[in-house]
Design a protein around this nucleic acid. Structure first.
Length: 438
RNA sequence: GACCCAUUCGUCUAGCGGUUAGGACACAUCCCUUUCACGGAUGCGACACGAGUUCGAUUCUCGUAUGGGUCGCCA
């Protein structure tokens, strides 16, 4: 246990990066970083018919988006490559020969090769589940090579773990029932099996294993929905593991506190509401500039044209505690960037509800037009002055201004809106609203 | 069907023989307030069941039930 750990995440590029796979990768990554070991990415693409280049790319993209770097693997290299199983056939052939020499394989009529199980009891020391005992198996010997010469998962997985010097295998609990087969193989090769940690599965809200159909099953869906990588990263860590020092933690804290022995052995349901809450928390910590940067793709998608970057940063910042996802931002800020914003029906109705609204807005506009300085304080003071002059409460004027300036019934403080939009445009917007009431 | 893992508020969980069973999300109420939010306060809400072991079980053991997983020439 004192050797430098070498752990790996070994996804199969058959689809998108799955949230469960990402969490597995994350625990491996956390463990490697915690112990100063190596985190290896190995692509298990032995089944050519099912693998796609898009899927391979999606995995790499997803890993990078979440902020997990790998010390060895695709596009990085390393001393134990290649890191694509599709390129390691010579190694597998050599290992197959060892099994053959030991009399542990035999051929089926069609050419497929099977590994002869030892048929002895096997016990798995697991850092999460404890010691798990499996009685001598009565299952048929397992196929390890197809008739076309390509090898099966269980075989290549073990061979590569040996060849790559993997010391700890942290993977989903769905593998626990098959692990005795792997150990049997390790023994057949005269090797000691690595340390295992089978982590609980992530279940959908219905309580079964998350599948591709479920909301939030692919990492890309979080990118699209406007999640921040740090937020997802943090939330995913909490599924199956409880850090001792709190829930909302930085990566450094997560790395420092990570221990495989603290991982639970019961499955956990994914709670999108709490995941979203985490995102809201992380969103609020962003500086105006960083928030704008993160929001940019979503603003672009909504065809919002940002003129002044500084103003745009202030605009998104002004509503950041009102949203949980970046994708919600455009609806809250679009009117900052165009004089041709739409009016909600509800807003028009409220403006028309009272005849005096027209008078009040006209007076506000007149006072705004007279100002020689324009900022949040000046604008706010002007509204209060108008209110005093007309003997009404400022609170009676604010909603009207909000309606006129934004066309919406909710938003940041009215003074903030006035400041960001500017004097001339604010006056123009009130005129526009007045025209609507005519 | 066989085997494996699990079972505390709706969800994620703390608990490692004696606790008023704690926290987070959600929910409810109140406060704050120019809207919507944020924030603050309070509240609602759980040990699957049955036997043991013990002076005493949420905690240990066994059984039952329930949930999940695995038994592929998928990974």
């Amino acid at each position: 246990m004192s050797e430098t750990p070498r752990v790996r995440f070994a996804p199969s590029p058959t689809g998108y990066l799955h949230v469960g796979g990402a969490r597995t990768a994350l625990f491996n990554w956390l463990y490697a970083r915690h112990r100063g070991g190596k985190f290896i990415l190995r692509i298990e693409d032995t089944d050519e018919a099912r693998n796609t280049e898009e899927a391979r790319q999606a995995i790499l993209d997803g890993m990078r988006w979440l902020g997990m770097d790998w010390d060895e693997g695709p596009e990085v290299g390393g001393d134990f490559g290649p890191y694509f199983q599709s390129q390691r056939k010579a190694i597998y052939d050599a290992y197959y020969a060892k099994l053959e020499a030991a009399g542990r394989v035999y051929l089926e009529d069609n050419g497929a090769a099977r590994f002869k199980f030892s048929r002895e009891p096997i016990h798995i020391p697991d850092m999460v589940c404890g010691d798990v005992q499996f009685a001598a198996t009565e299952e048929p010997d397992m196929t390890i090579r197809r008739p076309d010469g390509s090898y099966i998962f269980h075989f290549v997985n073990v061979v590569d773990d040996i060849e790559m010097g993997i010391t700890h295998v942290i993977r989903g609990e769905d593998h626990l029932s098959n692990t005795w087969k792997h150990i049997d193989l390790f023994h057949a090769f005269g090797k000691q099996a690595p340390r295992y940690a089978h982590i609980p599965l992530i279940l959908n809200p219905g309580g079964s294993k998350m599948s591709k159909r479920d909301e939030g099953s692919s990492i890309q869906s979080y990118v699209d929905a406007g999640f921040l990588p740090d937020a997802l990263f943090n939330y995913l860590c909490l599924l199956g593991w409880t850090p001792k020092v709190g829930e909302k933690l930085s990566r450094a804290e997560l790395i420092a506190g990570f221990a495989p022995t603290d991982i639970h052995s019961g499955n956990a349901r994914f709670d999108m509401t709490k995941c979203t809450w985490f995102n809201a928390q992380y969103l609020r910590e962003l500086s105006p500039e960083d928030l704008l940067k993160a929001a940019r793709p979503f603003l672009d998608m909504a065809a919002i044209v940002i003129g002044d970057e500084a103003m745009a940063a202030k605009a998104v910042h002004s509503v950041k505690e009102k949203v949980s996802l970046l994708s919600e931002l455009p609806a809250w800020v679009h009117y900052f960037f165009t004089q041709d914003y739409a009016f909600e029906d509800e807003v028009i109705n409220k403006l028309k509800a009272k005849a005096e609204n027209k008078t009040l807005l006209t007076e506000l506009k007149a006072d705004f037009a007279k100002l020689t300085t324009w900022d949040e304080h000046a604008a706010h003071a002007s509204v209060e002055a108008t209110a005093a002059r007309l003997s009404v409460k400022p609170g009676a004027l604010m909603p009207l201004l909000r309606f006129a300036l934004s066309g919406q019934s909710r938003g940041p403080g009215v003074a903030t809106i006035l400041d960001l939009i500017g004097q001339a445009k604010s006056v123009a917007r009130i005129e526009r609203a007045l025209a609507l009431l005519a």
